[in-house]
Amino acid sequence: MAWDRNQMAARAAQELEDGMYVNLGIGIPTLVANYVGDKDITLQSENGMLGMGPFPFEGEEDPDLINAGKQTITELNRTAYFDSATSFGMIRGGKIAAAILGAMEVAENGDLANWMIPGKLVKGMGGAMDLVAGVGRVIVVMDHTNKAGESKVLRECTLPLTGKGVVDRIITNLGVLDVVEGGLKIVETAEGVTEEELRAATEATIVG
């Protein structure tokens, strides 16, 4: 037993507090928006929007209104639009409280790799490097292991970094870990997962 994608997203949503401005990455992080409940959260889309709404109804798509994943979306009654330089000004300037992002690898010192696999398809970092360098808190949501069953929570990242020492908290299908002095600290385990199982699936140093 472990958390599925939706349970991981629901757990990540618990990290958000009323009044926060938040940036959600592509994939599981996008699902987090479904679990914020009554909390007053403003979603930023780094292509130039605060107050991102849900997907439009069929037939109401607007080519001038997309999110950072290039998907058609809608606006809300609180929405503001701005240019890319302003958008990354608020990111770099620390105005965005948190970013919830996917990852290929995370290391025990908070290093994050999520943009490039050398020799394979290289698509680019987009806004990920700016986000992890600038926002208040970086929360990674990802599967604990890769398709080969190898840990993605490592002593050191092997892939090119997106940011150095930037991750605060890791939420995986097996549990929640915080980056602390000397390694990672287990915050909780997923339903039906024991601490021994979480430790066994983790290459990184676990402290405490």
């Binding site: 439009p56 109804f57 069929e58 037939g59 798509e61 080519p63 997309i66 290039k70 058609t72």
Partner: peptide, 12 residues
């Protein structure tokens, strides 16, 4: 033309 790259919608 204003082409849409990822057309995502929800059902009414």
């Amino acid at each position: 033309e204003k082409r849409i790259e990822q057309r995502t919608t929800r059902k009414k």
